[in-house]
Protein backbone atom coordinates (compact mmCIF):
# COMPACT_ATOMS: atom_id res chain seq x y z
CA UNK A 1 0.00 0.00 0.00
CA UNK A 2 1.53 3.30 -1.09
CA UNK A 3 1.30 5.75 1.80
CA UNK A 4 1.77 9.06 0.00
CA UNK A 5 -0.33 11.09 -2.35
CA UNK A 6 0.66 12.26 -5.81
CA UNK A 7 2.51 15.56 -6.44
CA UNK A 8 4.19 15.33 -3.08
CA UNK A 9 7.70 14.55 -2.10
CA UNK A 10 8.40 10.96 -3.06
CA UNK A 11 11.85 11.02 -1.42
CA UNK A 12 12.60 12.89 1.77
CA UNK A 13 16.10 12.70 3.24
CA UNK A 14 16.84 14.30 6.60
CA UNK A 15 20.28 14.79 8.15
CA UNK A 16 21.68 11.72 6.48
CA UNK A 17 25.16 10.75 7.63
CA UNK A 18 27.16 7.79 6.41
CA UNK A 19 30.37 7.12 8.25
CA UNK A 20 32.29 4.03 7.17
CA UNK A 21 34.16 1.79 9.59
CA UNK A 22 37.47 3.35 8.49
CA UNK A 23 36.21 6.77 9.65
CA UNK A 24 35.53 8.19 6.19
CA UNK A 25 32.40 10.34 6.16
CA UNK A 26 30.88 9.69 2.75
CA UNK A 27 27.63 11.62 3.36
CA UNK A 28 27.59 14.49 5.82
CA UNK A 29 24.16 15.70 6.98
CA UNK A 30 22.40 15.51 3.66
CA UNK A 31 18.92 16.98 3.42
CA UNK A 32 16.90 16.76 0.23
CA UNK A 33 13.38 16.39 -1.07
CA UNK A 34 12.50 15.00 -4.45
CA UNK A 35 9.04 15.33 -5.95
CA UNK A 36 7.23 12.69 -7.94
CA UNK A 37 8.08 12.93 -11.64
CA UNK A 38 11.24 14.97 -11.09
CA UNK A 39 14.46 14.08 -12.87
CA UNK A 40 17.27 14.92 -10.51
CA UNK A 41 20.94 14.83 -11.42
CA UNK A 42 23.40 14.25 -8.61
CA UNK A 43 26.87 15.42 -9.52
CA UNK A 44 30.17 15.78 -7.79
CA UNK A 45 33.82 14.83 -8.12
CA UNK A 46 35.05 11.29 -7.49
CA UNK A 47 34.59 10.36 -3.85
CA UNK A 48 31.93 13.04 -3.30
CA UNK A 49 29.54 10.41 -1.90
CA UNK A 50 27.13 10.01 -4.83
CA UNK A 51 27.10 6.22 -4.99
CA UNK A 52 26.95 5.96 -1.19
CA UNK A 53 23.88 8.19 -1.25
CA UNK A 54 22.21 6.10 -3.98
CA UNK A 55 22.97 2.86 -2.13
CA UNK A 56 21.31 4.22 0.99
CA UNK A 57 18.28 5.38 -0.99
CA UNK A 58 17.90 1.93 -2.54
CA UNK A 59 18.19 0.19 0.83
CA UNK A 60 21.49 -1.53 0.05
CA UNK A 61 23.45 0.41 2.63
CA UNK A 62 22.47 1.30 6.17
CA UNK A 63 23.03 4.97 7.08
CA UNK A 64 24.90 5.91 10.26
CA UNK A 65 22.44 8.68 11.17
CA UNK A 66 19.41 10.41 9.73
CA UNK A 67 16.12 9.53 8.10
CA UNK A 68 15.10 8.42 4.64
CA UNK A 69 11.44 8.28 3.72
CA UNK A 70 10.54 7.00 0.29
CA UNK A 71 6.89 6.95 -0.77
CA UNK A 72 6.09 7.53 2.88
CA UNK A 73 7.98 4.49 4.13
CA UNK A 74 10.85 4.77 6.55
CA UNK A 75 13.34 2.71 4.59
CA UNK A 76 15.96 2.74 7.32
CA UNK A 77 13.64 0.63 9.46
CA UNK A 78 12.65 -1.59 6.55
CA UNK A 79 13.43 -1.00 2.88
CA UNK A 80 11.35 -3.94 1.63
CA UNK A 81 8.04 -2.04 1.04
CA UNK A 82 9.62 0.22 -1.60
CA UNK A 83 11.50 -2.46 -3.50
CA UNK A 84 8.61 -3.43 -5.81
CA UNK A 85 8.37 0.24 -6.83
CA UNK A 86 12.01 1.01 -7.58
CA UNK A 87 14.39 0.22 -10.41
CA UNK A 88 18.12 0.39 -9.85
CA UNK A 89 20.83 0.54 -12.48
CA UNK A 90 24.02 0.15 -10.43
CA UNK A 91 27.30 1.83 -11.30
CA UNK A 92 29.28 -1.37 -11.21
CA UNK A 93 28.54 -5.01 -11.25
CA UNK A 94 27.98 -7.85 -13.60
CA UNK A 95 25.08 -9.52 -15.20
CA UNK A 96 24.51 -13.26 -15.04
CA UNK A 97 26.69 -14.14 -18.00
CA UNK A 98 25.07 -17.45 -18.95
CA UNK A 99 21.52 -16.08 -19.27
CA UNK A 100 20.20 -14.71 -22.53
CA UNK A 101 19.13 -11.08 -22.71
CA UNK A 102 15.47 -12.10 -22.65
CA UNK A 103 15.89 -14.52 -19.75
CA UNK A 104 17.79 -11.99 -17.68
CA UNK A 105 15.15 -9.29 -17.96
CA UNK A 106 12.26 -11.79 -17.68
CA UNK A 107 13.53 -13.56 -14.55
CA UNK A 108 14.18 -10.27 -12.78
CA UNK A 109 10.71 -9.09 -13.79
CA UNK A 110 9.39 -12.22 -12.05
CA UNK A 111 11.56 -11.56 -8.98
CA UNK A 112 10.22 -8.01 -8.90
CA UNK A 113 6.79 -9.55 -8.41
CA UNK A 114 5.30 -9.50 -11.92
CA UNK A 115 3.08 -12.39 -13.00
CA UNK A 116 4.39 -14.66 -15.77
CA UNK A 117 2.17 -13.00 -18.40
CA UNK A 118 2.97 -9.45 -17.29
CA UNK A 119 6.69 -10.29 -17.04
CA UNK A 120 6.69 -11.69 -20.61
CA UNK A 121 4.79 -8.67 -21.95
CA UNK A 122 6.99 -6.13 -20.18
CA UNK A 123 10.19 -7.93 -21.17
CA UNK A 124 9.16 -7.88 -24.83
CA UNK A 125 8.25 -4.18 -24.60
CA UNK A 126 11.50 -3.26 -22.87
CA UNK A 127 13.54 -5.16 -25.46
CA UNK A 128 11.76 -3.24 -28.20
CA UNK A 129 12.20 0.10 -26.46
CA UNK A 130 15.90 -0.46 -25.80
CA UNK A 131 16.53 -1.80 -29.32
CA UNK A 132 17.54 -5.15 -27.89
CA UNK A 133 15.00 -7.24 -29.78
CA UNK A 134 17.53 -8.62 -32.25
CA UNK A 135 19.80 -9.59 -29.36
CA UNK A 136 17.12 -11.28 -27.24
CA UNK A 137 18.54 -14.78 -27.67
CA UNK A 138 22.15 -13.77 -27.21
CA UNK A 139 23.89 -14.71 -23.99
CA UNK A 140 25.09 -11.81 -21.86
CA UNK A 141 28.75 -12.74 -22.40
CA UNK A 142 28.27 -12.27 -26.16
CA UNK A 143 27.22 -8.61 -25.78
CA UNK A 144 29.28 -5.43 -26.14
CA UNK A 145 29.64 -3.05 -23.18
CA UNK A 146 26.95 -0.75 -24.59
CA UNK A 147 24.45 -3.56 -25.04
CA UNK A 148 25.15 -4.85 -21.53
CA UNK A 149 24.45 -1.39 -20.17
CA UNK A 150 21.11 -1.43 -21.96
CA UNK A 151 20.31 -4.74 -20.25
CA UNK A 152 21.14 -3.07 -16.91
CA UNK A 153 18.59 -0.40 -17.75
CA UNK A 154 16.11 -2.99 -19.00
CA UNK A 155 16.19 -4.79 -15.65
CA UNK A 156 15.78 -1.54 -13.77
CA UNK A 157 12.73 -0.53 -15.83
CA UNK A 158 10.93 -3.83 -16.39
CA UNK A 159 8.72 -3.51 -13.31
CA UNK A 160 7.48 -0.05 -14.42
CA UNK A 161 9.06 1.52 -11.33
CA UNK A 162 7.88 4.71 -9.69
CA UNK A 163 11.47 5.67 -8.94
CA UNK A 164 14.49 4.84 -11.08
CA UNK A 165 18.03 5.17 -9.76
CA UNK A 166 20.65 5.40 -12.50
CA UNK A 167 24.14 5.40 -11.02
CA UNK A 168 26.66 6.42 -13.69
CA UNK A 169 24.55 4.66 -16.32
CA UNK A 170 26.71 5.70 -19.26
CA UNK A 171 30.12 5.07 -17.69
CA UNK A 172 32.39 3.35 -20.19
CA UNK A 173 30.10 3.86 -23.18
CA UNK A 174 31.18 5.46 -26.43
CA UNK A 175 29.58 8.82 -27.33
CA UNK A 176 27.08 7.28 -29.76
CA UNK A 177 25.92 4.69 -27.23
CA UNK A 178 25.63 7.44 -24.63
CA UNK A 179 23.50 9.53 -26.90
CA UNK A 180 21.29 6.50 -27.69
CA UNK A 181 20.97 5.77 -24.00
CA UNK A 182 19.78 9.25 -23.08
CA UNK A 183 17.36 9.31 -26.03
CA UNK A 184 15.84 6.15 -24.60
CA UNK A 185 15.58 7.62 -21.13
CA UNK A 186 14.00 10.75 -22.59
CA UNK A 187 11.48 8.53 -24.41
CA UNK A 188 10.65 6.79 -21.13
CA UNK A 189 10.20 10.05 -19.25
CA UNK A 190 7.88 11.31 -21.99
CA UNK A 191 5.74 8.17 -21.88
CA UNK A 192 5.75 7.98 -18.06
CA UNK A 193 5.94 11.58 -16.80
CA UNK A 194 5.16 10.47 -13.24
CA UNK A 195 8.35 8.37 -13.06
CA UNK A 196 10.95 9.93 -10.77
CA UNK A 197 14.53 9.52 -11.94
CA UNK A 198 17.67 10.07 -9.93
CA UNK A 199 20.84 10.09 -12.01
CA UNK A 200 24.50 10.34 -11.18
CA UNK A 201 26.96 10.88 -14.01
CA UNK A 202 30.35 12.32 -14.80
CA UNK A 203 29.14 13.51 -18.19
CA UNK A 204 27.57 16.75 -17.11
CA UNK A 205 26.32 17.76 -20.54
CA UNK A 206 24.04 14.71 -20.32
CA UNK A 207 22.32 16.13 -17.26
CA UNK A 208 21.87 19.38 -19.14
CA UNK A 209 19.90 17.34 -21.66
CA UNK A 210 17.68 15.46 -19.25
CA UNK A 211 17.58 16.83 -15.67
CA UNK A 212 15.02 19.12 -14.08
CA UNK A 213 17.17 19.76 -11.06
CA UNK A 214 20.78 19.37 -10.00
CA UNK A 215 22.27 18.50 -6.66
CA UNK A 216 25.99 19.14 -6.28
CA UNK A 217 27.81 16.97 -3.78
CA UNK A 218 31.32 17.69 -2.60
CA UNK A 219 33.09 15.99 0.31
CA UNK A 220 29.83 14.29 1.22
CA UNK A 221 27.84 17.52 1.52
CA UNK A 222 25.28 19.17 -0.72
CA UNK A 223 26.99 22.36 -1.78
CA UNK A 224 24.37 23.60 -4.21
CA UNK A 225 21.02 22.60 -5.63
CA UNK A 226 18.49 24.05 -8.00
CA UNK A 227 17.31 23.85 -11.59
CA UNK A 228 19.97 24.11 -14.25
CA UNK A 229 19.36 27.75 -15.14
CA UNK A 230 19.29 28.82 -11.49
CA UNK A 231 22.50 27.00 -10.76
CA UNK A 232 24.27 28.50 -13.78
CA UNK A 233 23.21 32.00 -12.82
CA UNK A 234 24.03 31.54 -9.15
CA UNK A 235 27.50 30.25 -9.70
CA UNK A 236 28.71 31.98 -12.80
CA UNK A 237 27.05 35.43 -12.68
CA UNK A 238 26.51 35.14 -16.41
CA UNK A 239 24.25 33.15 -18.63
CA UNK A 240 25.55 33.66 -22.16
CA UNK A 241 28.77 32.60 -23.78
CA UNK A 242 30.06 34.00 -27.08
CA UNK A 243 32.89 32.09 -28.68
CA UNK A 244 35.09 33.63 -31.39
CA UNK A 245 38.62 33.57 -32.75
CA UNK A 246 41.40 34.64 -30.37
CA UNK A 247 42.85 37.10 -32.88
CA UNK A 248 39.95 39.50 -32.21
CA UNK A 249 40.47 39.48 -28.44
CA UNK A 250 42.01 42.94 -27.99
CA UNK A 251 39.67 44.69 -30.44
CA UNK A 252 36.57 43.10 -28.93
CA UNK A 253 37.67 43.74 -25.35
CA UNK A 254 38.22 47.44 -26.08
CA UNK A 255 34.87 47.73 -27.84
CA UNK A 256 32.96 46.01 -25.02
CA UNK A 257 34.66 48.09 -22.33
CA UNK A 258 33.83 51.23 -24.24
CA UNK A 259 30.15 50.18 -24.27
CA UNK A 260 30.23 49.34 -20.55
CA UNK A 261 29.53 45.61 -21.02
CA UNK A 262 30.56 43.62 -17.93
CA UNK A 263 32.13 40.34 -19.03
CA UNK A 264 34.73 37.68 -18.36
CA UNK A 265 37.11 36.30 -20.95
CA UNK A 266 38.33 32.73 -21.00
CA UNK A 267 40.97 31.62 -23.45
CA UNK A 268 41.11 28.19 -24.99
CA UNK A 269 43.74 27.44 -27.68
CA UNK A 270 42.88 29.67 -30.65
CA UNK A 271 39.47 30.68 -29.30
CA UNK A 272 38.14 33.01 -26.64
CA UNK A 273 34.90 32.65 -24.69
CA UNK A 274 33.23 35.91 -23.68
CA UNK A 275 30.96 35.31 -20.72
CA UNK A 276 28.30 37.92 -20.06
CA UNK A 277 24.81 38.59 -18.85
CA UNK A 278 21.74 38.17 -21.11
CA UNK A 279 20.89 41.86 -20.84
CA UNK A 280 24.14 42.80 -22.62
CA UNK A 281 23.82 40.30 -25.44
CA UNK A 282 22.54 42.63 -28.19
CA UNK A 283 25.17 45.31 -27.43
CA UNK A 284 27.92 42.72 -27.34
CA UNK A 285 26.92 41.04 -30.58
CA UNK A 286 26.60 44.30 -32.49
CA UNK A 287 30.09 45.35 -31.27
CA UNK A 288 31.68 41.97 -32.07
CA UNK A 289 29.97 41.88 -35.49
CA UNK A 290 32.08 44.89 -36.49
CA UNK A 291 35.15 42.61 -36.50
CA UNK A 292 33.80 39.14 -37.26
CA UNK A 293 30.59 37.30 -38.00
CA UNK A 294 32.15 33.94 -37.16
CA UNK A 295 30.79 33.63 -33.63
CA UNK A 296 28.94 31.00 -31.61
CA UNK A 297 26.44 32.04 -28.95
CA UNK A 298 25.65 29.41 -26.31
CA UNK A 299 24.89 28.80 -22.65
CA UNK A 300 27.77 27.95 -20.33
CA UNK A 301 28.24 24.20 -20.06
CA UNK A 302 27.57 22.30 -16.88
CA UNK A 303 31.25 21.48 -16.76
CA UNK A 304 31.93 25.19 -16.27
CA UNK A 305 29.22 25.34 -13.60
CA UNK A 306 30.71 22.31 -11.90
CA UNK A 307 34.19 23.78 -11.87
CA UNK A 308 32.68 27.03 -10.54
CA UNK A 309 31.00 25.18 -7.67
CA UNK A 310 34.20 23.39 -6.72
CA UNK A 311 36.22 26.64 -6.93
CA UNK A 312 33.65 28.44 -4.76
CA UNK A 313 33.89 25.63 -2.22
CA UNK A 314 37.66 25.90 -2.12
CA UNK A 315 37.46 29.67 -1.68
CA UNK A 316 34.88 29.33 1.11
CA UNK A 317 37.09 26.86 2.93
Amino acid sequence: MVKYSANREIIVVKDLVKRYANGVIANDHINMKIKEGEIVGIIGPNGAGKTTLIKQLTGELLPTEGDIHIMGFNIIEDPSPIKPFIGVCPQEGNLIHYLTVWEHIYYFARLKGLSKEKARKNTDEILKMLNLKTHRKKRINELSGGLKRRVFVGISLVNEPRIVFLDEPTAGLDPISRMDFWRTIKKITRSNPETTIIITTHYLEELDYISDRLIFLNNGKIVLEGNIEEVRKLILDYDIKITLSKKFKDLVMKALMREGVMCKIKEERNKIHILLSKKDISTAISEIARFTSDIVVSSPTLDEVFIGVIENEKNNN
Binding site: T58, G59, E60, S80, K83, P84, I86, V88, P90, E92, G93, N94, L95, I96, F108, L111, K112, G113, I155
Partner: peptide
Protein backbone atom coordinates in the same frame (compact mmCIF):
# COMPACT_ATOMS: atom_id res chain seq x y z
CA UNK B 1 32.21 -10.13 -5.45
CA UNK B 2 30.92 -9.68 -9.00
CA UNK B 3 28.03 -7.48 -7.88
CA UNK B 4 25.29 -9.85 -9.09
CA UNK B 5 23.86 -10.00 -5.58
CA UNK B 6 23.01 -6.29 -5.94
CA UNK B 7 20.36 -7.22 -8.50
CA UNK B 8 18.69 -9.46 -5.94
CA UNK B 9 19.15 -7.02 -3.05
CA UNK B 10 17.49 -4.15 -4.89
CA UNK B 11 14.60 -6.37 -5.99
CA UNK B 12 11.83 -7.39 -3.59
CA UNK B 13 13.60 -10.68 -2.94
CA UNK B 14 13.82 -12.04 0.60
Amino acid sequence: LGGIISWYRTSPVH
